[in-house]
Design a protein around this nucleic acid. Structure first.
Length: 339
DNA sequence: AACACGGCCAACCGCCTGAAT
DNA sequence: CATTCAGGCGGTTGGCCGTGT
């Protein structure tokens, strides 16, 4: 038997709250505290349902709510947490003091989501979008092939890079439980037994496995998990580090690793295609974003640099790598551009 | 000035979970 | 164990408001 809606009773007011109603609710809660939402409206003299009162209090009237625009740091934190938690707005809000889940959800849907889409990043998976052009149509199209040359990017390398991105994405499913093939939040993830990782040396492989998605969470706006917020997320959260500071060092390692990666690829030019999994991201779809039909050397320089510098954290590393690979493969052309 | 349109966000809706009975 | 209910959560809506024509 379904439960009847709490606001079904006739005579209860809906819609925007008036200043008088707000004051009644504030006065009552200041005297009696909050909770018992079902009986609160009657006691406070409000013609509202308890649910409406609770929402008004938690999302608007609560004294500790921070107002105003989201800072860059807050936005960055939201993106990072969303990449790990998904649409767990409550869990995200728990790590952003003064912000409500509703506010963060609205901000995500109206700002961040669009921003990521403009950057060519899927706001759900936080990986480069797959629905953009593929590499063949990119190079075959006179609109996008601004160089009028045959493809200089080795498709095999692109698949390798796709594998890397895919692997990193899975690594970024925070604190992956290797034994149960799902992340700490119960979301299944794909084990890539035949991925590129097998072709890295042990140090590199270890580094990848140890690279946390939350490497960049160490910013001033990000507070450590409290036991309360931890419970919201996952019972096994006791394995979470109390501080993310030690990840800084690993982030550096990751960057070093990425910098060295070109050499590894050069040394492993004969990587067999069979090592790539069917779930590999079509990495090549990212390349058209770097170039536009109107690209002049100056604007190309600007857009490529901006593309790298404009993104941040994990995406920056991924995109940096993508760009470096692209640069390497198109060295002659880009040399003239970046002179 | 009037209208259309789109973005934004407060509020609502429906579902889920866990506690109480 | 089954049922009921309060509280909480994420998705969606509707109205306000700014901007463009």
């Amino acid at each position: 038997m379904g439960r009847s809606p709490c606001c079904e009773k006739s005579g209860l007011k809906k819609g925007p709250w008036t200043a008088e109603e707000d004051q009644k609710l504030i006065d009552y809660i200041q005297k009696n505290g909050y909770g018992k939402w079902r009986t609160l409206p009657g006691n406070a003299g409000l013609q509202r349902c308890g649910k409406s009162c609770r929402l008004r209090w938690t999302n608007y009237l609560r004294p500790d709510i921070k107002r105003g625009r989201f800072s860059f740091e807050e936005e960055e934190t939201i993106i990072q947490l969303h990449s790990v938690l998904g649409n767990k707005w409550c869990a995200i809000a728990a790590r952003l003091p003064g912000r409500t889940d509703n506010e963060i959800k609205n901000y995500w849907n109206t700002h961040i989501r669009k921003k990521l889409l403009r950057m060519g990043i899927d706001p759900v998976t936080h990986t480069p979008r797959l629905d953009l052009l593929d590499i063949s149509s990119f190079y075959n199209s006179p609109r996008t092939n601004i160089f009028g040359v045959q493809p200089m990017v080795n498709p095999e390398w692109l698949r390798i890079a796709a594998s890397l991105l895919s692997s990193q994405h899975n690594q970024n499913c925070n604190l992956v439980d290797q034994n149960h093939h799902q992340n700490k939040f119960g979301h299944p993830y794909q084990v890539q037994e035949n991925s590129l990782l097998q072709f890295q040396n042990q140090d590199h492989q270890t580094l990848i496995q140890e690279t946390p998605s939350c490497a960049s969470l160490n910013n001033s706006n990000c507070v450590p998990f409290t036991s309360e917020s931890a419970q919201l997320m996952e019972p096994n959260v006791d394995q979470l580090p109390s501080s993310f500071s030690h990840f800084d060092q690993q982030t550096c390692h990751l960057n070093d690793w990425l910098n060295n990666l070109d050499h590894n690829f050069m040394a492993n030019d004969d990587i067999p295609q069979s090592t790539l999994t069917s779930s590999d991201v079509d990495f090549s779809s990212q390349l058209p974003n770097l170039l536009t039909p109107s690209s002049s050397p100056t604007s190309l320089n600007s857009s490529l640099t901006g593309f790298i510098n404009g993104s941040n954290t994990r995406d920056e590393r991924e995109i940096s790598y993508c760009s470096n690979l692209f640069k390497y493969e198109n060295q002659e052309i880009l040399d003239s551009v970046f002179m």
